[in-house]
Design a protein around this nucleic acid. Structure first.
Length: 477
RNA sequence: GCCCCCAUCGGCUAGCGGCCUAGGCCCCCGCCCUUUCAAGGCGGUAACACGGGUUCGAAUCCCGUUGGGGGUACCA
């Protein structure tokens, strides 16, 4: 049977959106959009201890920022509890599941016994064969119960995973897992596959960490007589120490990268490349290219290390591919989001944006590069030391001041001519003449183009800053 | 302990038996361009984990070893 493709994005709202999850969402989305399938958004908040409403809001915003959309939802599993309860009750009635009265202590004792005997640490199934009298006795004792699925104990469960090929498990090693907790809430192992069945999910694309729970979930499909989905287990995303990516590795959430000035298209592009490639040489891809090129068949098997350096480089590529208007808009949006003082002068940002466009890898670098255009200069001490150590600095500034005085129209072209003239007049190299000017007006040795910077700064302010530097040099000498 | 997955340069990867004296990108190192820094151009260092097979031929197939990762919850 060939059902219309349908995937799901199942965030568990317990914190910031991890780039590993983002990668999974991107693959689901790229795959579904590429084949004209549907996307369902479903918050898996059955862990009520750790789930928060704030995290849901946050996830919604981040998904929007990433440009990942969906056709159905957002659902919240906590709003579907009655469904799970009813389904579990039916399962118990049919004998596919059963009540387990074991206490936490009893369970722990059993695990200990198994550990000692070097046996697999699974539930032995004590309550699976309780007769009604024994059940009644436990109930009379006032013991609560959880519901466990009666998982087959013989044979093997196997799948043909899109990326891993065929994988199989010995059913004897599975054990009966809990599907309903004693407080009446469903577990992930139940709610997740139940919803997948209920929502008609055809392709389960998720991290490899979930590979080993597949046979348990398949047991539910079997108990419910549902057609299993196509599975696709993605390789893990690791940190530089080859351990699963976590906060220890620095920035790991989409929000953090966004606030550093990574743009959505770059993040989507980068993340798509950890675990997948289009060919032997393509790196930069637009969202549209990704959509049309992505296939699950080219997802690879081995885990990949998340490399912030390459992400930043790619971000620079995406930034440079933007036209001036789009770049400025994104830059402004970023400055506003992080609450930068520069956001108060949007017109100035628009003027300065072109000067920084070719240089940035991250939008957050804009402030450091162009901040001198937005207020008083702060001279970097190290940069100033270089100027002070240059014997020709004073002479250079004086010559530049003299030449600049004759500039009729304060434009980059005329300014350049004046600076060149200063070089000729003093017989000094441009490098020697320009450095003190650069430090005087921008405060540092790294800046956008000098002529353009001077033009934008304006005649009066530029001359004032150069005079101030000359004065400071004279005082020091 | 038990189960599952994985294994090409420092990182991301191409490679699906001969096209590989292993290609691309990031990082790093030189050089060029240049008013600084970026960007760009050119060049360089650097990998098939190991051991057995199979084959005329193995990075590619099989087995084992080692190493890494994941799971083993009334977390997801």
């Amino acid at each position: 049977m060939n059902r219309p493709v349908c995937v799901r994005l199942p965030p568990s709202p317990t914190g910031l959106l991890h780039v590993g999850s983002a990668r999974t969402f991107v693959y689901n989305w790229l795959f579904a959009r590429g084949v004209g399938g549907r996307v369902v958004l479903r918050f898996e908040d059955t862990d009520t201890e750790r789930s928060t409403a704030g995290a849901i809001e946050q996830a919604l915003r981040v998904l929007g920022w990433l440009g990942i959309d969906w056709d159905d939802g957002p659902y919240r599993q906590t709003e579907r509890f009655p469904l799970y309860a009813a389904a579990a009750a039916r399962l118990v009635t049919s004998g596919a599941a059963y009540r387990c009265y074991c206490t936490a202590e009893e369970l722990e004792a059993e695990r200990e016994r198994r550990r000692a005997a070097e046996l697999p640490l699974i539930y032995g199934g004590r309550c699976r064969s309780l007769d009604s009298a024994q059940q009644a006795a436990f109930e009379a004792e006032g013991r609560g119960f959880a519901v466990r699925l009666a998982v087959p104990r013989e044979g093997v469960t196997s799948i043909v995973d899109v990326v891993r090929g065929s994988v199989e498990w010995d059913n004897a090693l599975l054990g009966d897992h809990v599907i309903m907790r004693s407080d009446g809430s469903p577990t992930y192992q139940f709610a997740n596959p139940f919803d997948d069945i209920d929502m008609g999910i055809t392709h389960v694309i998720r991290g490899e960490d979930l590979l080993s729970s597949t046979p348990r979930q398949l047991a539910l499909y079997q108990a419910l007589g549902a057609e299993p989905p196509t599975y696709c287990h993605l390789p893990m995303v690791l940190g530089t120490d080859k351990k699963r990516l976590s906060k220890r590795h620095g920035a790991v959430s989409v929000e953090e990268f966004r606030d550093r000035g990574v743009i959505a298209d770059a993040l989507v592009n980068y993340v798509a490349l950890v675990g997948w490639s289009y060919d032997d040489h393509t790196t930069y891809m637009t969202r549209g290219e990704l959509r049309e090129r992505f296939t699950l068949e080219r997802v690879n098997r081995s885990p990949g290390v998340f490399d912030p350096d390459k992400l930043e480089w790619l971000n620079g590529e995406h930034l440079r591919a933007l036209d001036a208007g789009a770049f400025t808009a994104l830059l402004l949006e970023h400055l506003q989001r992080i609450g930068s003082r520069l956001a108060d002068q949007p017109a100035r940002v628009a003027e300065a944006a072109p000067l920084a466009h070719e240089k940035l890898r991250l939008l957050s670098q804009f402030e450091g590069l162009c901040g001198f255009l937005f207020g008083p200069v702060e001279i970097d001490p190290i940069a100033w030391d270089k100027v002070a150590a240059e014997p020709e600095a004073a002479q250079s500034l004086a010559a530049v001041l003299a030449e600049l005085a004759g500039v009729a129209e304060w434009r980059a072209g005329a300014i350049e001519a004046a600076l060149r003239a200063a070089c000729d007049a003093t017989g000094l190299k441009p490098r020697v003449v320009f450095t003190p000017v650069r430090v005087a007006i921008t405060g540092g040795t790294v800046s956008p183009g000098l002529y353009e910077s001077l033009e934008l700064l304006g005649r009066d302010e530029s001359l004032a800053r150069i005079r101030a530097a000359a004065g400071r040099l004279a005082t020091a000498a």
